[in-house]
């Protein structure tokens, strides 16, 4: 179907002429730099404010810098980008809008909570395969202090967090994808459905999002017709330690056994064993920076050949949470392969 570049299977799109991940860049804050992936960031800020008046301005600055870095790494200029697809966690995604103002390219603002970066890659690769664009920039970022004050409490408020809570990452990632030849190809994408099993505990995002992850992984493997072993690495986007365990359990019940060593979670990966982040990292910057930093580098070096990234997002707001609504989860997946 379509134009011969794509085959659609249910909620998955498999590329017969796959778009290329031309270049990617990741940027982070001080805490992320001290984590085990510190060396995989292209730039690290020494503090969470970096001289900006507000944390929101810092988040926007981070997004803009990472976009400029990815464009430079791709050997392009800003005007080569046919579309700019970007999202963040703030109300009305202002960090992305303000970055789009600076880049001045045709822009789509996205929101899929922590899955935003991968939503961008899916839409971008579909736009490229459709022939509507040659080069697209996808980005997402988050800041721990902006998320804290918007979703939880003032940063300096003394509230004891339970062990299954997660820590919003101060990081951003950007990728340039295009129709030209290159090392890393986007071979298939699976768009997630919203899954909500009635979890209301906003301190247990992992538990709220794990069913969406299981749903998307099941759909992807079935619709692409491959087994989980096909991938060298399956990556979930910030389910955290608790959510990762639940996801393994859920998939096992569906007859999909993920290899413990070949299934990792961005939220667990980014801070390692750091106890101060509780169950792990979260936020759009987490998946974005791990995918476009750590994973991108390992694919480029040939250490990995086939990776499936299934980012997860919790589609709640402080208002919906206070109105006692349950937390809908979504998971978007992309397959990145060296061909």
């Amino acid at each position: 179907m379509m134009n011969g570049n794509i085959v659609r299977q249910g909620q998955s799109w498999i590329f017969t002429v796959p778009p290329t991940l031309i270049a990617a860049a990741a940027i982070g804050g001080p805490k992320e730099g001290k984590g085990p992936l510190g060396a995989d960031f292209d730039y690290l800020f020494a503090d969470n404010r970096d001289g900006q008046e507000s944390f929101e301005q810092m988040e926007q600055k981070m997004l803009q810098i990472v976009c400029e870095m990815a464009i430079a790494k791709a050997g392009c200029v800003v005007d080569d980008m046919d579309f700019f697809l970007c999202g963040d966690l703030l109300n009305q995604i202002t960090s992305s809008g303000f970055t789009a103002r600076a880049l001045s390219r045709p822009y789509f603002g996205l929101f899929a909570a922590c899955a935003t970066a991968i939503e961008g890659v899916i839409l971008g690769s579909l736009l490229i395969a459709s022939g509507a664009a040659n080069k697209i920039m996808c980005a997402a970022g988050s800041h721990t202090c902006t998320a804290e004050r918007q979703f939880r409490y003032p940063n300096e408020y003394g509230c004891q967090k339970p062990p299954q809570s997660q820590y919003t990452t101060t990081a951003a990632g950007a990728a340039v994808i295009g129709s030209e030849e290159g090392t890393i190809k986007i071979t298939a994408v699976t768009t997630g459905r919203v899954v909500d099993l009635g979890v209301t505990d906003s301190f247990n995002m992992g538990g709220a999002m794990a069913p969406a992850f299981a749903d998307t992984i099941t759909a992807h493997l079935l619709q692409r017709g491959v087994s989980a072993d096909y991938y060298d690495l399956i990556l979930s986007g910030d389910l955290g330690r608790v959510g990762r365990d639940i996801a393994l359990d859920l998939l096992y019940r569906r007859g999909i056994v993920l290899n413990e060593h070949r299934y990792v979670d961005c939220g667990c990966l980014i801070y390692g064993d750091d106890k101060s982040v509780f169950a792990g990292g979260s936020g759009c910057g987490c998946v974005a920076s791990v995918s476009f930093g750590h994973i991108y580098r390992r694919l480029m070096s040939g250490e990995l050949n086939r990776v499936l990234i299934a980012a997860t997002g919790a589609l709640l707001s402080p208002t919906s949470s206070q109105q006692k609504q349950s937390i809908p989860g979504i998971s978007h997946a992309v397959a990145l392969e060296r061909i």
């Binding site: 339970p162 062990p163 247990n204 538990g207 330690r241 608790v242 365990d245 639940i246 359990d249 169950a279």
Partner: peptide, 10 residues
């Protein structure tokens, strides 16, 4: 799902 989420919560 309730027993699963409870089994894995810290």
């Amino acid at each position: 799902y309730d027993p699963i989420i409870k089994a894995h919560g810290t």
